[in-house]
């Protein structure tokens, strides 16, 4: 049998490198918590409530404590007096990491 390919569609997807390693991916389905921003609870690949488009317009921010949020969500929190400049997860003083911190 001969097959002639007349048309094809390439499909690609992207993901932020949030530090969810491959073995974690295996049980990602049971623990979807890892894939959402803890503040707005929208997936990292989605965008924060003030943005319309995900991606570079609504990037993530990594803390040295290894916690990840939508940048806009975290900055909004740090701008409130009650945040005391602490990470909303572990209450350590927030220090932005340059990129993903290995856990």
């Amino acid at each position: 049998m001969k097959v002639a390919v007349k048309q094809w569609h390439a499909v690609a997807y992207w993901k932020w490198d949030t530090g969810a390693t491959t073995e974690q991916d295996a049980n990602a389905d049971e623990d979807a918590e890892d894939d959402v921003c803890g503040i707005c609870r929208v997936s990292f690949e989605g965008c924060c409530p003030t943005c319309k488009m995900p991606g570079d317009d609504c990037p993530l921010i990594w803390g040295q404590c290894t916690h990840v949020f939508h940048m806009h969500c975290l900055l909004k929190w740090l701008n409130t007096a009650s945040s005391k400049q602490q990470c909303p997860m572990d209450r350590r003083t927030w220090v932005t990491a340059e990129r993903k911190v290995d856990r």
């Binding site: 503040i39 009650s82 909303p88 997860m89």
Partner: peptide, 9 residues
């Protein structure tokens, strides 16, 4: 009050 953080629900 003082211990609220936005990751709580």
């Amino acid at each position: 009050r003082e211990d609220w953080k936005p990751v709580l629900n």
